[in-house]
């Protein structure tokens, strides 16, 4: 794993809100094309981490760099799948998915091709002309994923995107996500408090402590093939290991 090229560098990253230390000197690398999961208990500052990484919130100390340069939305290709459904209600599914490409000024023909492909991969083609008020919560979240993948980002950040979905919908979308990632091989940072989800999806898991949040340990999962079997002894073993790490603070 460590022989892979480092894509994103997190160095001494700290975030304070007044006297409250939320993120405390976090240090790690994310490798090119890696699917990394960050797990931690609810309220440990995972969303703050996402907002700091994407510069939606300024950090107090340290830095996050993309290929050794400070992240700049205008220069770097970054996508974010938010925790809450974030479809723009006045745009159809198609128009929601294409928005990143539209902002980045892609030609119309390429937008058409890319959006068609990603809608097909996420199973949304039939719903392309629907407005978000006419589709389910699961589909809305899939729109968010399609919108994030369509730009083929250098860094894709996902902040507990399936937290509000029921188990079967979540499994379905998780499988779509893995297929999409296997096809596109983008660098993904997936933040969740669902340990099984982390083991099911990722190549590597970073386990966070309670506030002030630090990286407690990293766990490798990349040797398990997709689609993963949640009853597989190795899967169960890793899940138990991660659970123990989360349990004993």
């Amino acid at each position: 794993m460590n022989q892979r090229k480092s894509k994103i560098q997190v160095r001494d990253l700290s975030k304070h809100f007044g006297s409250l230390v939320v993120l405390d000197q976090m240090n790690f690398d994310i490798y090119d094309g890696e699917f990394l999961c960050i797990v931690g208990p609810t309220g440990c500052g995972k969303t703050t981490f996402c907002n700091v990484v994407t510069s939606l919130l300024p950090c107090t100390k340290g830095a996050v760099t993309l290929e050794s340069e400070p992240i700049d939305f205008k220069k770097h290709n970054v996508s974010f799948v938010f925790q809450e459904p974030s479809c723009l209600p006045w745009r159809t599914v198609w128009d929601n998915v294409k928005i990143g490409l539209e902002i980045k000024g892609y030609p119309k023909k390429e937008i058409r091709e890319r959006v068609s492909e990603v809608l097909d991969l996420t199973g949304l083609t039939r719903f392309k002309d629907f407005f978000p008020n006419a589709i389910s919560a699961g589909m809305k979240q899939r729109v968010g994923i399609a919108r994030a993948f369509v730009t083929e980002p250098d860094m894709l950040l996902m902040d507990e995107p399936f937290g509000q979905l029921d188990t079967s919908t979540r499994f379905h979308i998780e499988n779509s996500l893995v297929q999409l990632w296997q096809k596109k091989k983008q660098t993904v940072i997936f933040v969740t408090h669902n340990l099984e989800e982390a083991v099911y999806l990722s190549e590597r898991i970073l386990v966070c402590t309670q506030k002030p949040t630090k990286i407690k340990k990293e766990v490798y999962v990349g040797h398990l093939d997709h689609p993963r079997n949640i009853a597989d002894p190795e899967f169960v073993k890793i899940r138990r290991e991660v659970t123990d790490l989360v349990r004993w603070w």
């Binding site: 939606l56 939305f73 970054v78 996508s79 974010f80 928005i99």
Partner: peptide, 12 residues
Amino acid sequence: PLHVNVVKVFGA
């Protein structure tokens, strides 16, 4: 603000 952040991240 979420809608604004959606497009900000794309460099709007």
